[in-house]
Simulated scan of single mutants.
Amino acid sequence: MQKLKLGRSDIMVTDWCLGTMTYGNQTDRADAYQQIDMALDAGINFLDTAEMYPVNPISAETVGLSETIIGEWIAKTGRRSEVVIATKVSGNNPGWVRDGRGYDGDVIRQTVDASLRRLQTDVIDLYQMHWPERGSYMFRQNWTFDPSGQDRQQTMDHMRDVLEALDDCVKAGKIRAIGMSNESAWGMTKWIDQAEALGLPRMASVQNEYSLMCRLYDTDMAEMAVNEDVTLLSFSPLACGLLTGKYQDDVPAGSRLSINGSLGGRMTPRTLPVTQVYLDLARDHGIDPVHMAMAWQATRPFLISAIFGATNVDQLAHLLAGRDVVLTDDLIAEIDAAHKANPMPY
């Protein structure tokens, strides 16, 4: 496990991060507590959650439950000092939280306090906006993305309002660093430009989807990250379980695909055939496909802390067994060739 700096902050995180979005529905409390202990004992120091978690399915009744479970673990174990905690405020939504209202400066001040209470901690290490209020091309919206209805001045005013609220929270000692999620290169540079011009907190990270199967980050976002010192927190590095191979022949009961039917739009006619290309590569090189997918993240030319999730401790044990795997140059070259031949499966 390697340590890396979160943007230009003084926070050091491991290059793997334990995601907790199933805590409270697919993953019960006892399993969640054990997972956190296992991750820390394996050298991981980073947890990611959100006010809207758990998901699969998302419901108003379970909003905040994943944070609550982490808070209970903190109270139970006293290991708060060993872990960096990241959480998020939800943007506009169908009604899961705040009757669908997204976030502005006033909401931020309230939601930070609410997350602190649920997490049973005095400070949130990384506070993130779950998606931009103006909209996002993430989650398969890239195929029909239309930014023509955006109002630039409205966006700039919103960013300033949010940054000023986050600045209040930083000065009050409630949060240490800030980040975005599901954001674009233009959006990230504008958040950073505003912060630098006004002396407000600067984005340290961006949490976007990134895996062997989803590589939208590789161009404009990668250039932004390198030049602006923004750390990628990559979610779904196993492509929502596709890269484990478990969906090639069947749909396991209780799996995400069995619950939502499309893996959030990731299931297309090309998905399973392209998945098989990577499974075959792993087999040919004598490496577990899960370990290959996770180790590949460390080969990229920008800083990544890869957020992985496990429904249960057995899945987590399998993942952790590959924490020291390093890919050969030959395998990396074959992965590059596979991507060029099979781009954008979903």
Rank of each mutant, 00 (worst) to 15 (best):
M213P: 09
N312F: 05
D336M: 03
M1C: 09
Y247M: 04
D99Q: 01
V97H: 04
R323Y: 12
K174N: 14
Q194H: 11
E61N: 08
R256W: 09
P94G: 12
T244N: 01
I108N: 08
A75E: 12
R152E: 09
V162N: 06
E228F: 14
N92Q: 12
G105A: 03
D249L: 07
H318C: 10
T62Q: 02
G265W: 00
P301M: 01
E51N: 01
V55Y: 00
Q154L: 14
A298K: 15
A165E: 02
V89C: 13
I259F: 03
G19N: 05
E51V: 00
D41L: 11
G100C: 08
N312I: 01
R176D: 07
T155F: 14
N142A: 14
N93Q: 10
N56L: 08
Q110H: 14
V55N: 00
G245D: 03
L4V: 12
Q35H: 03
L242W: 04
D10V: 01
L257F: 02
G241W: 01
Q26M: 09
G254K: 06
A185Q: 13
D151R: 14
R98A: 00
L212M: 15
F302D: 05
A317G: 13
R117T: 11
A333C: 06
D249C: 00
R117N: 12
W73N: 05
L212C: 10
S181Q: 06
A293L: 08
D249P: 00
P132K: 11
M203V: 12
L119F: 02
K88P: 05
L212T: 12
S115V: 09
S184L: 14
I335F: 08
P273I: 04
I58H: 00
A42N: 09
V13P: 04
T219Q: 14
A295D: 06
T121C: 08
R300Y: 03
I74K: 06
D314A: 15
T155A: 13
I11E: 02
Y278S: 11
L166K: 04
T268F: 06
L243K: 03
R266P: 00
A86N: 10
S258A: 15
Y127T: 07
E209F: 05
E67K: 03
I259R: 05
K76S: 13
G261D: 05
G187L: 12
E223C: 08
N182D: 15
L316S: 05
R8G: 09
R323N: 12
A253S: 13
S181T: 08
E61S: 08
H285D: 08
L257S: 02
M344F: 15
L238N: 05
G24L: 00
L232I: 11
G245F: 06
Y53P: 00
D161V: 05
L243S: 04
R323F: 12
V290G: 07
G241R: 00
D28P: 02
C214Q: 09
D31S: 15
V123A: 09
S211F: 07
G149K: 06
L233H: 14
C169K: 15
T14G: 11
Y127Q: 05
T144D: 15
V230E: 07
E228I: 06
Q150S: 13
D37T: 09
E334G: 11
V290P: 09
G245C: 04
G173P: 03
T328H: 11
D324M: 11
A306Y: 02
K88G: 02
S184P: 04
M203Q: 07
V89R: 05
S81G: 08
C17L: 10
M224R: 10
